[in-house]
Amino acid sequence: MTLLRAEGLVKSFGKTHALDGAGISIREGEVVAVMGPSGSGKSTLLHCIAGILPPDSGTVHYRDRDLTAMSDSERSELRRTEFGFVFQFGQLVPELTCLENVALPLRLSGMKRKDAERAATDWLARLEVDGVADQRPGETSGGQGQRVAVARALVTGPKVIFADEPTGALDSLNGERVMHLLTTAARETGAAVVLVTHEPRVAAYSDREVVVRDGRSRDVEFAR
């Protein structure tokens, strides 16, 4: 079943046409790689379909809800409850421990500290980084930090994980480990993954790819 569907997305930054009629469709539980050269509009596309950035025109539907017609607070509520995010780096709160970082989204949803931390501990173990639970993000290696970020993205049981170059700052071995753990966990929980990457070996963890070029995307599934 189609979970997310965007059509005719246009987005400009001043004179730069970042998106020029892009579209994409994501089905439940699938891992889709968004590929394309640097500057082609991949991140802008991801931000638009995740409800972070409003497009100038075009539509984004999550199930039967139109994101472009929602208020800011409705959109942030949707992001908090249905989506998870992993970026290249810098997404963890530096003052909190890794455990507190992973527990944070649950705390923000009103869960009790003890329950939130128990769930966070489980997720850190699944991502094989329970060893850094009490360290701050700055004290971990890049690979460990990204696994903590993946745990934080998954802890709320989201339906879609948006990952923008999640391995961009890692070496091959660590990058592949993160991809393996991310896609395995997503498949186990049934979450779909929208994976922005320009690296073919990272894209190889996906089920299919959508190619963005000059702000336009080529999604072969789209016509269906």
Partner: peptide, 20 residues
């Protein structure tokens, strides 16, 4: 080029699964 890329990626997916 697109057709070739898609074929290459499919092979890479298979290899990645096998590697896993």
């Amino acid at each position: 080029l697109d057709t070739q890329r898609s074929a290459h990626l499919n092979t890479m997916r298979e290899l990645t699964r096998r590697k896993t």
